[in-house]
Design a binder for these strands. Structure first.
Lengths: 359, 359
DNA sequence: GCCAAAATTTGAACCGATCCAACGAAAGTG
DNA sequence: CACTTTCGTTGGATCGGTTCAAATTTTGGC
């Protein structure tokens, strides 16, 4: 029995419309792309044909090939996609990237994946005009993949030891971390603990300076270097400063504080490598009736908005996140290869989470 | 003088590699797409040629045309792009959409624009397999544009009066709003004020029930209907309940409260059409030494995570946001036209921002 | 009514790949 | 050694548009 309706409804193409309207496909194309150059009568006829056949306008897939430009920039990370919406730092960065894109009419493609094989494929096949790469963890792998696309791309917060040739926008993590530590040493603190960002895929737990030097993410390394440079300067034995590697989430931060405050000699000052860590730490400290900054001072890193409204408001090192986002988008859209590396300055913002050492 | 280097470095194409390696373009394509079927010696030769000529693998633009699938879903809204990262409700929704996408390996394209002309173009030219449309304000316009693309699409929170044929996932705003109002009436409240979501492009300010019926966003209308249905039920004269239209931001909410509390008969209960509004309201009330829920009770709408940790924690109507995101992605990826409209239930979650009427 | 200029329309070429029927060469079989 | 398989390679067709030089039609001037 023959099928009553056509078995496969192939989508309508521009050529079909052209034929139906009795014009060449060139003219049909013009009806949509430059309607003003085609005679009104013809234009209406073509539009009518399109309407009648259920044609939804030229397929961008086809146009793309000729046009070349996608008009969208890709933002890639090795984290799961929801990182963009969950992580406070990422959110602020994305908001500033969004604004820059809005201003130029460009779209944003979020590129990531559950596993690294899929991620590689997704980067290779992303339809974008360029990449902004978030370099938290697994940065160099991502940079390599992005570079292989031969598209303009900018790395945010790239490993400072990495290839000098790639365009990167970052902050001076060492200087920032030193600033944080100096703020606390100047307040008289001498007993420190560090809540670190992830350094390996090994999960969370106490770690050492040597381990941290192997961190995948350069920010982690550099921030520790900055902290310890300052602590050493005032003759603190950094080998005795406990370092706890977290996963930048509540569970691991709380475990870290459980561990740190279980020891005999508890710290009076905590250096947190991210505001997110610091904010979770504030929660833990409040729940354990440890006053901030009375008993313990804490300084974060990043300068996310949540830090301004926490209880107490967080002293932190603020990164010029908006500026970074703007620069990154600008670099991509202008395909500006003129700079290879840009280190932006950071600022210490003193709020209420740090005070004089109780000792 | 002849230029020393080629004036225009046209990007290397697969065909160039093929010629350089002395194979057909078909074989060259196979080297990248199905390496196992090409003889090792040839494979290496082609790869070497690619390497030598700086070829970054097959251009997805070309592949796309043949493959048809972009492997990305578009999320569209009439708000600026940064809405996705700023608005608490959008963020939670996006996080759940992200998770669903991660699970299937699909990417996400954010589609929006500064002005509506650009927006139309961006939707028409978005490279996606389908759309999820955020229908806050200007929803029907967006839906129309998206439908014209003839791609699978799902509207989130679409106007309930709108075309029945479009797939939409939403919550029962009327029932939810009634639930919120009933919670407060049962606590004895009789003097109400409503802080409304935007209803027109006219900015913020006091408004009326009639105006609200013209709201672009159906959620706004329905929530008011729900509130007033319940208030009428207990014989409150709803025509005397002040309604203040906000822009869902701090400035307009604070202006609204300034206005509402300037009146002679101040409310004991505030119905906020979004948690974001409610949270800004809590700030204002705290700053004006009005205790919650001692002097005034407030109930939000949405169920964003911030509401659970505010001071005091917010009583609200929670939407099954994660569920909505999951359903939407599923519908797009499976091109599931089997449902046209899905109304999900909402829940009242009582926290500390609501209590007995002081009267 | 004739001719040049202006306005439209045409159709081939191209964008950069993938797919596939057909073909040639090498390997296996009787 | 002739004959089938098997394996690898080829080159043309195709995806769905845009572009542009050339052809055609219209318009305007005299």
């Amino acid at each position: 029995m023959a099928p009553l309706t056509s078995a496969k409804t192939r989508p309508v193409r521009l050529a079909d419309i052209a034929k139906a309207a009795g014009v060449s496909h060139g003219t049909a194309s013009n009806v949509f792309a430059r309607p003003e150059i085609v005679r009104e009568e013809v234009r209406e006829r073509v539009k009518a044909a399109a309407e009648a056949m259920g044609y939804g306008g030229p397929d961008p897939k086809g146009r793309l090939l000729r046009a070349g430009k996608v008009n969208a920039i890709g933002v890639a990370t090795a984290e799961p996609l929801s990182y963009f919406f969950d992580d406070p730092f990422a959110r602020v960065m994305m908001a500033s990237i969004s604004q820059a894109c809005d201003a130029t009419g460009a779209g944003i493609s979020l590129v990531s994946a559950a596993n690294s094989e899929q991620l590689a494929w997704n980067i290779q096949s992303a339809l974008v005009d360029g990449f902004i790469v978030f370099c938290v963890e697994g940065g160099s792998k991502l940079v390599e993949l992005a570079r292989d696309r031969k598209l303009p791309f900018v790395a945010l917060d790239l490993d400072s030891d990495d290839d000098e040739a790639v365009a990167a926008i970052g902050v001076d993590n060492i200087a920032g971390a030193s600033l944080a530590a100096r703020h606390l040493t100047e307040l008289g603190h001498r007993r420190f603990a560090v809540l670190a960002l992830p350094c390996a895929d090994s999960g969370f737990g106490p770690t050492t300076q040597e381990q941290m030097e192997k961190a995948l993410y350069s920010g982690t390394r550099d921030r520790l270097r900055g902290y310890f440079a300052e602590l050493s300067r005032v003759d603190i034995d950094v080998s005795r400063v406990p370092i706890y590697e977290t996963e930048n989430n509540e569970e691991s931060v709380w475990a870290g504080l459980d561990h740190i405050f279980a020891g005999a000699e508890t710290p009076t000052a905590i250096l947190a490598m991210s505001d997110r860590i610091a904010l979770h730490a504030l929660d833990w400290l409040r729940q354990h009736d440890i006053t901030v900054p009375g008993d313990v001072s804490i300084v974060g890193f990043d300068g996310v908005p949540e830090g301004a409204v926490s209880k107490p408001p967080l002293t932190t090192i603020v990164q010029p996140i908006a500026e970074m986002g703007r620069l990154a988008v600008k670099a991509i859209l202008e395909n500006d290869g003129s700079f290879s590396r840009r280190l932006l300055p950071v600022d210490l913002v003193v709020r209420a989470s740090s005070g004089p050492s109780p000792a």
